[in-house]
């Protein structure tokens, strides 16, 4: 049975690392749902957070093949219950909508915040689970969304030390 897994892949910061990591998934014909890359808590050690649907058996094999890469330090796999995770989204809507009390209420209730107020548009930021981000998208849709973007998942482990 397939379920959602989040892999944390810790690597050196070297050119081509992204391709090396994604090659392992491509070879096994796995489509990624989300990918986020950033420097980790250790300077010059990068963390790839990869989200996709898989089975525990396949995960074990993927970890082996990822850890076999020379510049990979360690790989951890987690189910959603084992991590604290969030995504971030930005929504651009017309400024004149602010005069509409309904939009203001949606922003408040969604625990979103306004980042920028331009003469023509406002930028709204929402951090949360994908369902919350999608729900806000749905609510704003009827008023017209000029632009939308959502980040990949970022996650930290619930255990004290990974």
């Amino acid at each position: 049975m397939k379920e959602e897994f989040t892999l944390s892949v810790f690597t050196e910061n070297s050119i081509g690392m992204l391709t090396r990591i994604t090659n392992v998934f491509t070879r096994r014909h796995i489509n990624l749902d989300s990918l986020t890359v950033s420097e980790s808590e250790v300077k010059q050690v990068f963390k790839y957070t990869v989200v996709f649907k898989s089975t525990q058996e396949q995960i074990d094999k993927l970890i082996g093949q990822l850890e076999r890469l020379v510049e990979v330090f360690k790989v951890f796999a987690h189910k959603n219950t084992e991590i604290i995770y969030q995504e971030l989204a930005l929504y651009k809507v017309k400024t004149d909508l602010l005069s509409n009390g309904a939009v203001e209420q949606i922003i408040r209730e969604s625990q979103a915040r306004i980042l920028t107020v331009d003469r023509e548009f406002i930028a709204i930021e929402k951090t949360g689970y994908i369902e919350e981000i999608e729900s806000l998208f749905a609510k704003l849709s009827s008023f017209g969304i000029l632009e939308f973007t959502r980040s990949g998942r970022v996650a930290i482990n619930k255990a004290m030390i990974e």
């Binding site: 050119i15 081509g16 391709t19 090396r20 090659n23 070879r27 020379v70 510049e71």
Partner: peptide, 14 residues
């Protein structure tokens, strides 16, 4: 060459 040989080398470097 780095891109082409990446999946079939233990390591490569430019």
């Amino acid at each position: 060459v780095i891109g082409i040989s990446m999946p079939i080398t233990k390591w490569n470097y430019q």
